[in-house]
Lab assay of single mutants.
Amino acid sequence: IDAAQIVDEALEQGITLFVVNNRLQYETSRDSIPTELLNKWKQHKQELIDFLNQLD
């Protein structure tokens, strides 16, 4: 699994991931984030931050 897949998966569930001051953040209108997704974010945090920083 790679960062792009995780970002896409989040988007499919209505969650936008982004980076502020090198910290992973998210925006969503959902009430809660699925635990499975949160765990993936934690496991791949640095990859996600690097990936999202490249997009900007």
Score class of each variant (00 low, 15 high):
Leu17Cys: 04
Asn21Cys: 14
His44Val: 06
Leu55Asp: 07
Leu55Ser: 09
His44Ile: 05
Gln43Thr: 09
Leu38Glu: 06
Ser29Gly: 08
Asn21Val: 04
Ala4Asn: 06
His44Gly: 03
Leu37Gln: 03
Ile15Lys: 01
Thr28Asn: 04
Lys42Gln: 12
Ala4Gln: 13
Ala4Met: 09
Thr28Gln: 03
Glu36Tyr: 13
Val7Cys: 05
Leu37Tyr: 05
Pro34Glu: 04
Ser29Glu: 13
Glu36Gln: 09
Gln54His: 11
Ala10Arg: 01
Asn39Glu: 14
Leu48Lys: 00
Gln54Trp: 11
Lys42Glu: 13
Ile6Met: 11
Ser32Tyr: 12
Asp50Ile: 11
Ala4Asp: 03
Glu27Asn: 13
His44Tyr: 15
Asp2Arg: 13
Thr16Gln: 09
Leu24Ala: 00
Thr28Cys: 05
Gln54Cys: 08
Pro34Gln: 04
Asp31Trp: 04
Leu52Phe: 08
Ser29Lys: 13
Lys40Gly: 02
Phe18Trp: 07
Gln46Cys: 08
Thr16Ser: 07
His44Thr: 03
Leu17Gln: 00
Asn39Arg: 12
Leu38Met: 10
Asp2Met: 13
Gln25Thr: 09
Leu52Lys: 00
Lys45Ile: 13
Ser32Thr: 12
Asp50Thr: 10
Ile49Trp: 03
Ile33Tyr: 03
Leu11Ile: 08
Gln13Leu: 14
Asp2Ala: 11
Gln13Gly: 05
Ile33Gln: 01
Asp56Lys: 10
Lys45Leu: 15
Leu11Pro: 02
Asp31His: 08
Glu36Met: 08
Arg23Glu: 15
Leu11Ala: 13
Ala4Ser: 10
Leu52Glu: 00
Phe18Leu: 10
Glu9Tyr: 06
Ile6Trp: 06
Leu37Ala: 03
Glu12Tyr: 08
Ala3Met: 14
Asp31Pro: 11
Pro34Asp: 05
Arg30Trp: 05
Tyr26His: 04
Ser32Cys: 13
Arg30Asn: 08
Gln25Pro: 00
Leu24Pro: 00
Asn21Glu: 09
Trp41Val: 08
Phe51Ile: 03
Leu24Gly: 01
Ile6Pro: 01
Ile33Trp: 03
Val19Cys: 05
Thr16Arg: 15
Asn53Cys: 09
Glu36Asp: 11
Ile1Trp: 12
Val19Gly: 01
Ile1Asn: 08
Ile33Pro: 05
Asp8Arg: 15
Glu27Trp: 15
Tyr26Val: 05
Ile49Phe: 04
Asn53Gln: 11
Glu36Pro: 06
Gln43Asn: 10
Asn22Met: 07
Ser32Trp: 13
Lys40Pro: 01
Asp2Ile: 14
Lys40Glu: 03
Ile49Cys: 04
Glu12Gly: 11
Leu17His: 00
Glu9Asn: 04
Thr16Asp: 05
Gly14Gln: 05
Lys40Val: 08
Leu55Val: 11
Gln5Pro: 03
Gln43His: 08
Asn53His: 07
Asn22Glu: 06
Ile1Ala: 09
Ser29Val: 09
Leu38Gly: 03
Gln46Thr: 09
Asn22Thr: 04
Gly14Ser: 04
Tyr26Gln: 02
Gly14Phe: 04
Thr16Phe: 14
Asp2Cys: 15
Ile33His: 02
Leu38Pro: 02
Trp41Ile: 15
Leu17Asn: 00
Ser29Pro: 06
Ile49Leu: 06
Arg23Val: 15
Leu38Arg: 06
Asp2Trp: 12
Ile15Gly: 01
Gln25Leu: 15
Pro34Trp: 02
Leu38Tyr: 08
